[in-house]
Design a protein around this nucleic acid. Sequence first.
DNA 1: CGGGATCCGATGCGATACTG
DNA 2: CAGTATCGCATCGGATCCCG
Lengths: 143, 143
Amino acid sequence: MEEGTSNSPSYCCRTEDDYGVLQWDTREDCEVRQILDRIADKWSLLVIALLDRHTMRFTQLRREIDGISQRMLTTTLRQLERDGLVRRTVHPVVPPRVDYALTPLGGSLHKTIQALVDWTEEHQSEIAAARTRYDHEAREKIN
Amino acid sequence: MEEGTSNSPSYCCRTEDDYGVLQWDTREDCEVRQILDRIADKWSLLVIALLDRHTMRFTQLRREIDGISQRMLTTTLRQLERDGLVRRTVHPVVPPRVDYALTPLGGSLHKTIQALVDWTEEHQSEIAAARTRYDHEAREKIN
DNA sequence: CGGGATCCGATGCGATACTG
DNA sequence: CAGTATCGCATCGGATCCCG
């Protein structure tokens, strides 16, 4: 395909039209877009990446994710639990003990998340170089 | 591995320690974290997903991404261009014509982005079900 | 058409204090 | 330990106007 035409796919949900051709649903309130916003969230991504095969406690997660506030960790974990990606286990002991782990659904998501993290690690030097080049050229245009 | 210990991996950059064991860099200002924040951004994700094999013009992108403002599209495209993921081509014609396309680097990222979108499409019903269940149980606890 | 500049409101998010 | 609740600001991002 060369250049996009008026009936080219647009974001975000792919559906088939009457002729069986893949089209995209452009609605902003599309469910897939909402889920993507949640998953591609700054903190959610890190939590899911971290929980791989680990059962972790609240404070432990907080220590591992530098810069996250207690409030945001709570919020993020609740949303992930609501979405069925994380399982929260409360142990009736004193002091309280709460464990977090990926559900099977969360585990399947972890694979693609990890692929994204891996890609970033592999290409970080290229991106850094591109940024340096861009900033350099931008500076030249001023002078 | 059972439960995380004090030397379990923590976010975000994996590096090897003196013994060659994979460790994670926990610094908040870690480069990988910054890149992830940029890529996993709401609009960046959509732009990259859309630009697959397409060369698209500004207005076209704007139409396809429902809900994006002109300002955010400009900002997003500039950042992606700076990161070397998108190539911006200005045609010296009147009226002006500017094309956007993925660079090879952006193309390699597209694969993992698309995997994330695909995952979301495949599992959206499971997530919707989990949300309904969660909200239902939360409502019961109140009563 | 493809933006840049400015204004300004929503809300994301941190800091702090309190609790079972 | 693992939260909840409240406050307050700072950043994100939309609306609008202007321009080559």
